[in-house]
Design a protein around this nucleic acid. Structure first.
Lengths: 139, 139
DNA sequence: AGATTATCTGTAGAGTTGTTCACACGTTAA
DNA sequence: TTAACGTGTGAACAACTCTACAGATAATCT
């Protein structure tokens, strides 16, 4: 089930050096499969752009239409549309249409938690993300 | 403290359309600052590469040296070194040196939680995963 | 000393990503 | 119907990122 296959490709002339072979084997056996790792990287990649981060943070407060998201985030409406397209694919956001409006909202609670955790890491207040509670960080 | 400034740049010839101006204002006022958003995007960006994800998942089990990380992840040792350099900057990992060995470990518990949350999001197999986040919140 | 080992760094090329522009699509109003 | 509106899409271009290779650095050993 594990990939990253070439640990011991053929014989003793393997060029890989190992210090703790047991640990390497143990960790390799518990490593998620390639597709899970790739999917994980894709999700994080979607959160790696400031514009998309702002869009998602805005959506934490509830659904919004494209033009309001543009005004909120400072992106162009086309830029917001492109970003939302990327986020729609892996179902990070979902859309509700009403007439010519498109109202977007978060489709996955994990993304909400990822954003909260990330903001905590970055030091933007404690868990209380969107409120100004100075939790000064030493060093 | 909020940026994304050009909501109402000067006058009525503003080209931005608003549907729910109150909501836009409310969300804008709670939006983290540019540097927090940028830092957040950087952190997620570091997690957006399969190689780095594998390195960090390996480090969930404890510290490892570069060559063992290479054997575990399938990356070249140079590639691991490059990846760790990126992760060292924002202090996602830390290094302990002993002789000519360099032992890397996770430097931030948030990253541990981000990885676990992400794996839950993609894998959803709900299994034993990686015994990560044992320091999670009490029941 | 020189050789070997483990890690680190610089660079170049291929590949990817974000932004902007222009226009297309479907909906609503006149 | 035509026009305006909100949104979606494709293409082009700059900017960025990943990977591999070569070499550098520092510690260890003979």
């Amino acid at each position: 089930m594990t990939q990253i296959p070439p640990l011991a490709p053929s014989g003793p002339e393997c060029s890989l050096r190992l210090v703790d072979a047991d640990k390497v084997e143990a960790v390799r056996s518990r490593m998620p499969g390639d597709s899970d790792v790739a999917d994980l990287a894709v999700i994080f990649g979607l959160l790696s752009d400031p514009g998309r981060v702002r869009i998602l943070i805005a959506l934490l407060e509830g659904e919004m239409c494209v033009c309001d998201l543009a005004a909120t985030t400072g992106l162009s409406e086309s830029g917001v549309s492109h970003a939302l397209r990327l986020l729609r694919g892996p179902r990070v956001v979902q859309v509700r249409r009403s007439g010519r409006m498109a109202y977007y909202s978060l489709a996955d609670s994990h993304v909400r938690m990822l954003l909260d955790l990330g903001l905590t890491h970055v030091g933007h207040t404690g868990k209380d993300r969107l409120r100004a509670v100075e939790t000064a960080q030493p060093g």
